[in-house]
Simulated assay, not measured.
Amino acid sequence: MDRGVFGDEHEQFRIMIRKFFTDEVLPDYPNWQEHGMPPRWFWKRAGELGILGIGVPTEYGGLPDSDLRYSAVVTEEAQRLGFALGGLRIHTDIAMPYFLEYANAEQRARWLPGLVSGDSVVALGISEPGAGSDLKAMSTRASRDGDAYVIDGSKTFISNGGGADLIVLACKTDPSAGRNGISLIVVETDTPGFKRGRRLNKLGLHAQDLAELSFTDMRVPIENLLGNENDGFSMLTFNLAQERLSIALNSQASARATIDATVAALAGTSPDQRAKFALAACRAETAAGQALMDSSLEALIAGRLDPLDAAIAKLYATELHGRVVDRCTRVLGLSHYNADDIVGQFYLDGRVSRIYGGSSEIMKVIIAQGFDFRKAESA
């Protein structure tokens, strides 16, 4: 299929990324799964290769003339080998835009070079125990005290939380104002009062860092406030289209990789018609999904991807992934229903994509809001 969304520069970048993943990451990946996170050498090497500088101005060390298409290449190459690199996408696609959009000149100079080089890893701290991503129910508080905020509370299910150097932390600065009283404050994790909790033993994504965090009388300078106080809710929603498309691109790439791995596992056999038909359905639906992902990616680059279209992309790709891995595991049989098998790994790693970044049900709510159910006025 001639996709058209990528140019020669992206394909040259792909060659470099494929070599990096195959030669350097693949041999060490079992250690990542054992320890529950990528090692620091990975972040430094990713910085050297420009992966962490995608979309960042060159004055801070960013990759020149780069956008989400480069991240899409990284995602596709990671999924080709079955790597769970959601923490990398958190760093580049989801958390980095907050610094690019809302950090002032001093903050950019202070934080961006380290984020681009891999000396600093960033996490986004939103979800809380008992509240999930319900911003109105957020209990983490930041109280102004002179030249600092004093922060108390906790977060959970935080990607990169176990190894992050910086946390873009959502907290209530005006508890009486609901979602209009939320601010984003950048927390350096060597700050007294910051504590990492237990490592979460997830169903899948064993190489991806996910942690609990807590804050007790943690004093953070007011200079670490991103944007304006109490503007956090609007700030958190500005990047939702890219966040959801990033998740969709990962699910789409995983679906394609699952089909390839299934066909490879069947090499030298004589699959029956049932298996062939199941794979044919997977291939057709995945081809449709690829067209949707590529058009959505082009729309995002052009500034035309709205929240509804991003919801459509995420809903389709994540649900597609679920259908593909279900069919492929049934085609391959019981011997592939384990985490040591790459298809089984795709099955386990992909399930949560229908939950984070907004569940499939939330995506349907957003999409349904685009319908006009009012009766047409009579002439």
Rank of each mutant, 00 (worst) to 15 (best):
Q12H: 15
F371N: 15
S71T: 13
D8Q: 15
R351N: 13
P192K: 14
T22A: 15
L85R: 11
H336F: 04
Q252I: 08
V73P: 01
R330T: 15
T189M: 01
R283E: 14
Q12W: 13
E243V: 08
F238W: 13
H206P: 05
G178I: 01
G86V: 10
R110P: 04
E229C: 02
P97L: 12
D231E: 08
P57A: 11
G370V: 10
L236D: 01
A177C: 08
A264W: 03
E223R: 10
V5Y: 08
S251L: 07
L135Q: 07
V73G: 03
G153W: 00
A148L: 04
G50L: 07
R304M: 03
L320M: 03
G130W: 05
K155A: 07
A255Q: 03
F215A: 00
T269M: 03
T58Q: 09
R198Y: 11
M293L: 10
E319L: 12
I342T: 13
P113W: 12
Y356W: 12
R45F: 06
I17K: 02
I167A: 07
F371G: 15
W32Q: 00
G130D: 04
K19R: 12
G82N: 09
P64Y: 06
P97Q: 14
S295R: 08
D372A: 11
L225V: 00
K195L: 09
S246Q: 11
D306E: 09
D174F: 02
A288E: 15
S133L: 01
R198H: 13
I301D: 03
M1T: 15
N201Q: 14
S71F: 05
L297K: 02
P221R: 13
A142S: 05
D372I: 04
C171H: 05
A280T: 14
V352T: 14
G61H: 03
A310G: 10
